[in-house]
Write a protein that binds this DNA or RNA. Structure first.
Lengths: 242, 242
DNA sequence: TCAGTTCATATAGCATTGCTATAGGTGCTA
DNA sequence: TAGCACCTATAGCAATGCTATATGAACTGA
């Protein structure tokens, strides 16, 4: 019943906790179960992780690294918005493959504990959206778009996890995904008249310039000039009249 | 320290549990805390609710009734899509007002336990979307639209709960909300050329007819005819070529 | 009126939980 | 060999969810 006798106890604890969590089906996992499966006694756990929550945080961190690796895995297609779609699908798939871990990561988020993960996930998506913004394909600030898309992505994934695996319908995911991407994108819909973006082109251009500037660290302006310039740009690109 | 001495113990237990849960800040609430606050001993709890989880299910059920009441509270504005917006905002506000309860309701949903609540919430939103569909304002089936919008709604609310209350930015909510509504709606965007809906008008009309038929129980067709007719209608209204 | 029945609550305690005070190896450097 | 830092084990505590059993109250039917 013990786990990989030759790994160091810390690793064995991590794996045991992850495995038990994955197979728990929502039931709480006790430290005794974990230490027994790891072939270790209680104080070892508390020596390495301080706390039961510390151990689970470590499990979550490992899970998140796996998630990030998955999100970075594929080569950019050259079409940023297409890459965003793949990020979305990757996110959903991660949640469905490891529902218990996912619920710990995104289902129980509370202000005092967890938003670091959310911030990292948002940064990951914002990074990709920046490319879209530079290419003039974005309607709104990349950060706002990332937050919005990620929120919908999490909501969809939770809904799919809540459904019995048998009648899980991934159309919910693709539909919501495309709706969100369409909403933030400056490109015309696949059948609409070209040039009709819903936002004036000056806003799109401002957003693109903003993103490009932040990516390239241009030397043409002094830092104080740049700061003011960016402020104006921001004001333009978030103008409600757009 | 005891709670409203004159209510029946079952009620006092419910209120004590709700109150402790609301103020727990995420920390687990023990049955001893609950029974002490309710001025009752342990077996009373298990007599009435069977289980700690049973008690919390009852709390959730009460919370959900409050939620539904809030969603039905306002008079329909005559513009179904505007009512959907209000439902969305109501949902978010409910979550922010009772974050702990909300997290129990929507943050920990697992296939085996909780989706009844989700189904009810979806039905509530679908009901409203049906009116939009009848009015020819919908791009997709009301059920799919409801699922999609609710998923995004839950995701946004969870994200907002996760943020410290100080820098909570409701713009995330309004932006995501309008993106989702726009995506499912057949109406032109507030600045786009009229008539450009992204979907062909035949699809919109088919969806509208479908919704109208299901609402009015027309007698013009036999039940078997109607069944086939609805099937065709469904095929048209979900046609990818639309 | 009173035994019988049902419902509701209390006393006391069990098994399990997260966690720790203390002590005992290990392997290294001097 | 002694000293030291690191890691692990023995044993046990307080708190938890829950229950076996008993007591009270309220109603029913004769």
């Amino acid at each position: 019943m013990s786990l990989d006798g030759q790994l160091p106890p810390k690793m064995r604890l991590l794996r045991a906790a992850a495995e038990l969590l994955a197979n728990s089906g929502g039931a709480p996992v006790s430290t005794r179960q974990i230490t027994q499966l790891a072939g270790v006694t209680a104080p070892t756990l508390y020596h390495h992780f301080g706390d039961k929550e510390g151990l689970f945080d470590a499990v979550v961190a490992a899970g998140f690294e796996e998630y990030v690796a998955g999100e970075r895995d594929f080569a950019p297609s050259g079409q940023p918005l297409e890459d965003i779609r793949r990020m979305w699908d990757n996110h959903v798939q991660f949640g469905l493959n490891q529902p218990e871990l996912y619920l710990v990561m995104f289902g129980n988020i509370r202000p005092e504990s967890r938003p670091a993960i959310v911030a990292d996930a948002e940064a990951l998506m914002e990074e990709m959206l920046n490319k879209a913004a530079v290419a003039g394909q974005l309607n709104v600030q990349p950060r706002e778009a990332a937050r919005s898309i990620l929120a919908a992505n999490v909501g969809v994934t939770l809904m799919l996890i809540a459904e019995p695996a048998s009648d899980r319908n991934l159309e919910l995911s693709t539909m919501t995904r495309d709706a969100m991407i369409f909403a933030v994108s400056a490109e015309p819909a696949p059948g609409a008249a070209p040039g009709d973006t819903g936002k004036s082109s000056v806003v799109v251009a401002a957003i693109a310039l903003n993103a490009a500037l932040q990516a390239s660290h241009s030397d043409q302006l002094s830092s104080s000039e740049l700061k003011l310039f960016l402020e104006w740009l921001h004001r333009i690109s978030t103008s409600p009249a757009g």
